[in-house]
Amino acid sequence: MHATIQKEMDVILTYLQPDEKIYVVGCGNCAEKCKSGGPEETEEMAQRLEKKGVNVIGYSSTPSGVGLCSLPMCRKMMIEENLDENNAADSFLVLACGQGIHTVIDATDGGEVHPGCDTIFGGETEQPGIVKEYCSLCGECVTAYTAGLCPMTLCSKMLLNGPCGGAKDGKCEVDKEKDCGWHLIYVRLKDAGKLHLLEAYYDPKNFAKWSRPRSLVVKGTEATFKSLAGEHTVSRED
């Protein structure tokens, strides 16, 4: 999921002009799980803005479980269900991740948007309300060699060939509360009897696969990932 956190009201207000007609848009998937922009928080934001004197002309969120970042779903909500209000709006305050913000631009044929949240990372929901980052969306997963733990994410220095000399008591040099990613990898590999994987040399990362923006096109059983590293097509048929 894309973890998001709401921006402070004082910050949001700096984006809005006096008398600007605002429509608040939320996301029923990740932003709902983060309590930053689900149906409840979207309604709440509309009320909070009104109390600050903002001209809120409407609000809506994709239903619970449905991501705003699906353009067909976003379009359905913005165009089919709330067309008049959306046409009347000067701009949209989006309570979702950056993908959701862009989906609103697409769904409204280039409408003006304001971010209501900061998109902070892609994460695992360990329990409701607790989200942690285990993947950096780098474009080429190396965890086959690292016991399922991503060194690009769990190691502060994104090292690929083992720990630096900065870890103390299994904790990282940047923060003594943070586990050293390579210590975790070492322990898991050792426990699994697979320390030989740590002994192997791993080439530098291909950062062209981490170029932005990237795209994915799925057709039938084929998927094509496009980045500055080129087009990479994989078939599900063996």
Binding site: N161, G162, P163, G165, A167, H183, Y186, E199
Partner: peptide
């Protein structure tokens, strides 16, 4: 002086 020393030594070999 790293503790554990094993991953340091593995990296040293690399």
């Amino acid at each position: 002086g790293a503790d554990p020393i094993e991953p340091q030594i593995i990296k040293m070999k690399k």
